[in-house]
Structures are given as C-alpha cells and as structure tokens.
C-alpha cells in the first residue's frame, strides 16, 4: 500500500483547488500536479496523495461534496532520476 500513490482527476481546475484546500485543512499530504501524461492527453490539474489516506479522502469528498472525476492508483515513481534531474537537483 505504501508503494502506491493515488491520483485524482477533476472536471475543472477549481475543483482541484477545492480538493487541495480541504485535504490540507485536514493535514493530509496532497500535491497538485499536471494530469500525468499516461492518464490523459489533456493538460489540466490533478491531485496526488498517499493511498493510505484514501478512506479519509473519500469521506471528505462526500462530506464537502467535491466533484471529482476519476481516481487512479499507481506505483510510486521508482525510476532512477535521469541525468538532468540529478544535475538540476544538485543546484
């Protein structure tokens, strides 16, 4: 479970912002990201959070009536960082 991350997509950026706000208020780790390329060819915003928080997140989505699109679970990025990433991070 700890090796997977959850990605939530939305119909509108506004909903993604609301989702982030509600989760942050509850101290749940969340980060808005561009929708991962393998999920969609669109360029909207998605939210990434830990799947271990999924049940709390689902409860909050219901409680706050946040409109969400799809939920994806995926393996956490285990790729070794590329050369460029390593150079840029060293900066």
């Amino acid at each position: 479970m700890e090796k997977t991350v959850c990605i939530m997509t939305f119909h509108a950026t506004y909903h993604a912002l609301g989702f982030e706000k509600v989760l942050k208020e509850q101290n749940i780790d969340v980060k808005l990201i561009p929708v991962p390329r393998d999920l969609s060819s669109s360029c909207g915003s998605a939210a990434r959070f830990r799947c271990q928080d999924l049940s709390s997140v689902k409860a909050l989505v219901d409680e706050y009536c946040i409109e969400v699109d799809e939920l994806y679970e995926r393996e956490e990025e285990t790729d070794r960082p590329g050369l460029l990433d390593r150079i840029l991070r060293k900066k």
């Binding site: 119909h11 509108a12 909903h15 609301g18 989702f19 706000k21 509600v22 409680e63 706050y64 009536c65 946040i66 409109e67």
Partner: peptide
C-alpha cells in the same frame, strides 16, 4: 462554493 453540504457542479 466547496463546503460542507454544498453540491458543486462541473
């Protein structure tokens, strides 16, 4: 608005 009990539409 997003809030408790408020139905948000797409």
């Amino acid at each position: 608005t997003i809030g408790k009990g408020v139905r948000s539409r797409g």
